[in-house]
Simulated assay, not measured.
Amino acid sequence: MRPARALVDLQAFRDNYRLARELSGARALAVIKADAYGHGAVRCATALAEEADGFAVACIEEALELRAAGIQAPILLLEGFFEAAELALIVEHRLWCVAHALWQVEAIEQASLDAPLTVWLKLDSGMHRVGLHPADYAQAYQRLLASGKVAKVVLMSHFSSADELDNPRSQEQVTQFLSASEGLAAEVSLRNSPALLGWPKVPGDWVRPGIMLYGASPFEHPQPQADRLQPVMTLSSRIISVRELPAGEPVGYGQTFVTDRSMRIGVVAMGYADGYPRHAPTGTPVRVAGRRSRLLGRVSMDMLCIDLTDVPEASLGSEVELWGRHVLATEVAAAAETIPYELFCNLKRVPRVYQD
């Protein structure tokens, strides 16, 4: 079989969740939307089933997959519902839902429900993506409580720039949230991964760790708490061909890399059809035969080339780590001018192998 694979360390996933609770001192919804950022939502949720305070997904399809797999913990729909007809399913499957728009508040008021809802009321505190306008927030809260359709409301918002620790925008958003929610007696959830790791003074009863659960830092630079995270996924493959090339020879499509000396080139069974970023440039780090090396030339659909010149131990069949414990996904993402979130979510075709 083709040797490309993604090894998922479920114990590391649990340890990262425990770190989130330790640092926050709050209850934590494990964010496992987008198939747990490419790690496998059902397996990740099952690994945390005995200790998670709850889970968060993007939409009802993702929630129903977890319920069908036997996950009984609370599950929050981060985008809420897209049409009022979903409310019956939300009640049936005991889901929590975000309300981020007045039409959703109205739909809840008008719905005929078999049981009351738990609603997370989202404020647009300055990100300007989704969320209620501050002028509408308190009234929406009162309407939900008065509707008789809601058992509990949690107040929430989302930071736009918490990964930038010197950016005043996060504190401005906290100030806006505190103003809009003044006098509202409810639990609060503000912190995502970067806010949880880097903004310890932000108040809240619930946190929503996402990328940190998978062991990747949301920050561009080292940060003491983020440095405690354990990478969960190791993307690896093997060398399937070795070439000895003299100086002046191109490697891969488009002649974007030309050897500047006699070089030894390894061809790895991994490409952009597997989710490895096509735009990763020459020099992107890899690890082969236990030593760090680099990508050479353009990434192809099914293959990429790496430098074996200074790694004499490497040969046909040698294992190559594309990202994982020794080559961090944040390093690869930085080289490819993207973020680790995208690397994980774009993974495809590569079989996932779970270690627990």
Results as ranks from 00 to 15, higher is better:
166 D>G: 03
18 R>Q: 12
132 L>S: 08
353 V>I: 11
175 T>G: 10
181 S>F: 07
289 A>N: 05
323 W>H: 06
28 A>C: 14
274 D>P: 08
340 P>M: 04
148 G>R: 01
94 R>W: 09
79 E>G: 15
38 G>I: 02
308 L>D: 11
350 V>Q: 01
190 L>Q: 00
158 H>F: 12
233 M>V: 15
267 V>F: 11
146 A>T: 06
47 A>Y: 13
233 M>T: 14
136 D>A: 13
142 Q>F: 08
219 F>R: 07
65 E>G: 13
76 L>Q: 13
255 Q>A: 15
140 A>N: 01
330 T>I: 11
97 C>S: 15
321 E>M: 02
10 L>T: 02
351 P>E: 05
48 L>F: 01
216 A>L: 03
187 E>D: 12
69 A>S: 00
251 V>I: 15
130 V>E: 15
292 R>I: 05
95 L>A: 04
238 R>S: 13
245 L>Y: 05
193 S>Q: 10
129 R>L: 03
112 S>K: 12
95 L>P: 03
17 Y>I: 08
212 M>V: 10
266 G>S: 00
194 P>D: 00
98 V>Y: 11
13 F>M: 05
128 H>R: 00
256 T>Q: 07
99 A>L: 09
121 L>W: 05
34 A>L: 00
154 V>R: 08
351 P>G: 05
32 I>D: 09
5 R>S: 09
343 L>A: 00
56 A>E: 02
328 L>K: 03
268 V>Q: 02
169 R>N: 06
219 F>V: 14
74 P>V: 00
122 K>A: 04
239 I>N: 11
303 M>A: 12
302 D>E: 11
317 G>T: 00
61 E>N: 10
191 R>E: 01
135 A>P: 10
119 V>I: 10
268 V>N: 04
121 L>P: 03
333 A>C: 00
226 A>R: 01
307 D>A: 04
100 H>V: 01
128 H>T: 05
